[in-house]
Simulated assay, not measured.
Amino acid sequence: MVLVMGRPGGGELGAVVGVLREWQREGAVAQLHPGDVGWFWRFGAEAVGGAVRVWRRGGRVLAVGLLDGERLLRLATAPEVRRDEAVARRLAEDLSRPERGVLGEGRACVEAPGDALVQELLAEEGWGTDEPWTPLRRELGEPVEEPGVRIEVTGPGRAHVRAAVQRAAFDNSTFTEARWRAMAAGPPYDDARCLVAHDERGAAVAAVTVWSAGPGRPGLLEPMGVHREHRGRGFGRAIALAAAAALRDLGASSAFVCTPSAHRAAVATYVSAGFRPLPEVRDRRRDG
């Protein structure tokens, strides 16, 4: 049967998120997580529907992509077809040819599992590699140490606080209370929590959103940030510990995060919170 690409129809997004949950496996190479789609949901369900691509064979979903902006596709595949040549060739063709309607002309990037055959086929199509990222993982079999600061779980009445910390942590952030509400209304947030850390005076100093994929599966931190006026005081470690503890409470087997390798302070923060660096990964990049 031919692999067919399309967009999810109305009401199908929840099913796509469910498929992504099933594909998360402990010990496997990390790939697009339900939490990645959940974080994108801050732009609303219509935007998610326009950004998601699915590849089906015989009606079964075998690959899911999320257009995270105009030039980056984040790709996941069913574990059993990751080295399937027919699937990989169709994916590589769809991603390399602008007329297929996935990525346009010019520079583009594809984030795909490192052991997927599509990585090699994109290289054959002339795709190079982008800047390195460092994945980090913390096992959650044992209880997580206390963060040492007060941690608040964000509800609708405190969404403005969570949004304000996000904007203070990332210079170009457009996160708002309204976008938090849109995110929280999406099906991925059923297995998620937003946490805010407060200092001894009660100021909100750091925040994180954690996403579970279900009991016994890896959970994701996306995003995590420390208020620019409160950096260098250990709040990054504290919120990372709180994130790991929250994912353990949600039944996750491990906590996973990925950060640009050039952000050495971020890597060091996660390591200080018990996360173990894994081998670097790189997106596939086409320059023209």
Rank of each mutant, 00 (worst) to 15 (best):
P79K: 02
P132I: 10
V102P: 00
G126D: 08
G69I: 09
A123P: 01
L121E: 05
S96Q: 09
D94P: 00
G155H: 07
V102E: 03
E139T: 13
A116H: 02
G106V: 10
D115L: 02
R100Y: 07
R107V: 14
E111S: 13
E139A: 15
E111M: 13
C109F: 15
P147R: 05
A76W: 00
P132Q: 10
R137D: 02
R100D: 08
P98G: 12
R150E: 14
T129P: 00
G157P: 04
L72W: 05
G104A: 11
L66A: 01
E142Q: 15
L73D: 01
V87M: 11
I151W: 00
R100V: 12
E125G: 10
E142Y: 08
A88F: 08
L136F: 04
E80K: 04
R82S: 05
G101F: 09
R71H: 09
G157R: 14
P98I: 10
P113L: 03
V118C: 07
G128F: 06
A76T: 01
G126L: 06
A92F: 04
G101I: 13
A76D: 02
E93K: 06
A116W: 03
G128C: 09
E145Q: 13
P98M: 12
P132R: 12
R71S: 12
L75A: 00
V110Y: 00
L72T: 14
D84Q: 04
D94E: 15
D94F: 07
G106L: 08
E93V: 14
R137L: 14
R71P: 00
E142R: 15
R82C: 03
V102I: 13
G104Q: 06
D115Y: 01
G128M: 13
L72C: 05
G106D: 07
R74T: 03
G141R: 13
E124I: 07
T154F: 06
P135Y: 04
A116F: 03
R150H: 13
